[in-house]
Deep mutational scan, measured.
Amino acid sequence: MPVRRGHVAPQNTFLDTIIRKFEGQSRKFIIANARVENCAVIYCNDGFCELCGYSRAEVMQRPCTCDFLHGPRTQRRAAAQIAQALLGAEERKVEIAFYRKDGSCFLCLVDVVPVKNEDGAVIMFILNFEVVMEKDMVGSPAHDTNHRGPPTSWLAPGRAKTFRLKLPALLALTARESSVRSGGAGGAGAPGAVVVDVDLTPAAPSSESLALDEVTAMDNHVAGLGPAEERRALVGPGSPPRSAPGQLPSPRAHSLNPDASGSSCSLARTRSRESCASVRRASSADDIEAMRAGVLPPPPRHASTGAMHPLRSGLLNSTSDSDLVRYRTISKIPQITLNFVDLKGDPFLASPTSDREIIAPKIKERTHNVTEKVTQVLSLGADVLPEYKLQAPRIHRWTILHYSPFKAVWDWLILLLVIYTAVFTPYSAAFLLKETEEGPPATECGYACQPLAVVDLIVDIMFIVDILINFRTTYVNANEEVVSHPGRIAVHYFKGWFLIDMVAAIPFDLLI
């Protein structure tokens, strides 16, 4: 008679799926529990143990900040960024110097990925580790590398530091407007667009060049630039800015003055950032001319202004700041037409079709709590990747769950009947059967004279019903998954307890 339990259901295979997918890609990662103190490590794979030199037993239950890997060259700011990422709910990448158990130093890129439950609360953290440099290539500990984003994938490793954006290309926007319009339909740009040429040739750093990471940081200074100062900065030398009595002219307006920039070969870094931020506020060169004239017309309804409409929906549905990093990277690809469009465009503009998908598509409701890094690593669709929660398995109709209350009560009843059979069957065979043979035949009273025979008949009927119930009862397979398919249940029961239950259900007393 089957006594099969499996009270692990309803099970959740999400954690096993993450481990299996990460292991298949030869990654070095740990999984931490966000619900406990210090976000203790609950799993670390073999790749991480080989990377740091510690065994799994030495890593388990330690804080996922990996303070046991810190050393003299470990930056405090990087460690603080990892700790801050564990307090938030967004994906974050941090470069930090770690030390192995043998004392060797290596520069590592740590990717902190939160995993949320159905309520939107962070319950786990996945920390992925990628070695960037070994100890002989690690720089000085005073050099802070965590304020910069990861290198873009479309640049060669040897040319990542030679990417320079020439400031004269930004200063000569109005001069290039006529050349853009003359391109017409034969050019790649839309009317009114501004073409910015980027020099990728390796050259020595000069005062006129600005690194790509500095251009990325310009967006942080746009908020500090007032509207009046932006307007004066875009007017140009024809209309000098008016300053109040006793007030000095704005240095932001002076930063885009061609006369002032041409007199000296070098520009201050602050002026460069502010000038680029001011130019980015204009949607095209037409807006710059309109600002000089004193009238700013409404933005025209053409394809170039609607190019950012799908980007707005993608940004609203993005799951991490990696989408913004990807957008900034692609927006700086050289030799393309940049349409400086305000994100607050007309909502009635139709979304044009684009061959290049900048932001990841909208994630469906079932995966809105899973970050983009987890979705990318697992390579699963929205119909396959579940949320991290207890999910009731989908069972067929008329199927009994093996952990249901009805099955528990039924098993206790069958257990009592088995005990009765084990006690009274030998007793009936030894004593009652002998008395029946010696006594007179009682054929007239039937079952009324033999109450134990009636009980034995009921017990046999219950055993037959138990066999039928076992054909529709779920079970737990070797992978700790609840199986509810009727065919698989029948095959599993035939290979197991079916023969024993059938022999126990045969009414031998009635056959004798």
Results as ranks from 00 to 15, higher is better:
K166L: 06
C108G: 05
S283Y: 05
Y43V: 01
W154C: 04
L87C: 15
E130G: 11
N33K: 04
H7S: 14
R242W: 15
G120N: 15
K93T: 12
R77T: 13
T216I: 10
M308N: 05
L296W: 14
R292Y: 14
D16T: 06
N339W: 01
S320G: 13
L385N: 05
S209Q: 05
K364E: 12
P251I: 05
N45M: 01
T145Q: 11
G103K: 15
S331V: 01
D321H: 06
S239N: 14
L171E: 12
G246S: 10
Q81H: 06
G103I: 01
F14Y: 07
V295I: 14
L200I: 07
A290W: 15
I30W: 01
T375G: 08
N369H: 03
Q376K: 10
L15S: 02
N317P: 06
P249H: 13
D16Y: 10
I18L: 14
D119P: 06
C265G: 11
A175L: 01
A307H: 13
H143W: 14
V3G: 12
G314Q: 07
I358F: 15
R148L: 08
I30R: 01
A40H: 05
A97H: 15
S275D: 11
T17F: 11
E372C: 07
L256C: 15
Q25P: 11
E177S: 14
A80S: 13
M124H: 08
D67W: 01
P361W: 01
L109I: 08
A142G: 11
P300Y: 15
I31D: 01
A290F: 01
V113M: 15
E58Q: 12
A32R: 01
R181I: 13
K364L: 14
V132D: 15
Q75A: 14
S275N: 14
C66P: 01
A228N: 15
D219G: 08
P240L: 13
I288T: 12
L87W: 13
S263A: 12
I96Q: 06
S272R: 08
C276Q: 14
R356S: 11
V36Q: 05
R181F: 06
G120I: 03
E365T: 11
P157A: 13
T74A: 01
S55N: 06
I333V: 14
V132A: 15
R62Y: 09
G246I: 15
T319Y: 08
P334Y: 01
L311E: 05
G262W: 13
E230D: 06
H7R: 07
S179M: 06
R252I: 03
N257C: 15
T305W: 07
K161T: 14
Q25A: 11
P251L: 09
L267H: 11
I42G: 01
F14V: 12
T337I: 05
L316T: 09
T162E: 08
A223E: 09
V122A: 14
A303M: 07
E58P: 01
I333Q: 15
R176E: 06
P258D: 13
P310G: 09
A156V: 14
S209Y: 15
G246T: 14
E372A: 10
E177Y: 06
V113N: 08
A290L: 03
R164L: 07
A217V: 07
K161A: 06
P227S: 15
N369Y: 05
P300M: 14
C49I: 14
T353C: 10
S207A: 15
G120Y: 06
D102A: 01
T337C: 12
T152M: 13
I42T: 01
L385D: 04
S250A: 15
C105R: 13
S354Q: 14
I126P: 01
L248A: 05
E37L: 09
D219C: 06
G224L: 14
C44Y: 01
A382S: 04
S261I: 09
L15A: 07
P141V: 14
A121N: 05
T13E: 09
E90N: 08
K166A: 06
V195I: 11
A78N: 10
C66N: 01
S206H: 15
S153P: 13
A32I: 01
R281C: 10
L107G: 06
A223S: 07
A175T: 08
G71R: 01
A285Q: 05
A382P: 14
Q75N: 15
E134G: 14
R5G: 11
G120R: 14
A360T: 12
V377R: 03
A193P: 05
G238C: 15
S243I: 01
N12A: 15
A83H: 04
T371S: 06
H302A: 08
V122K: 15
S283T: 14
G71E: 01
G88Y: 13
A204T: 15
P2Q: 06
P245I: 07
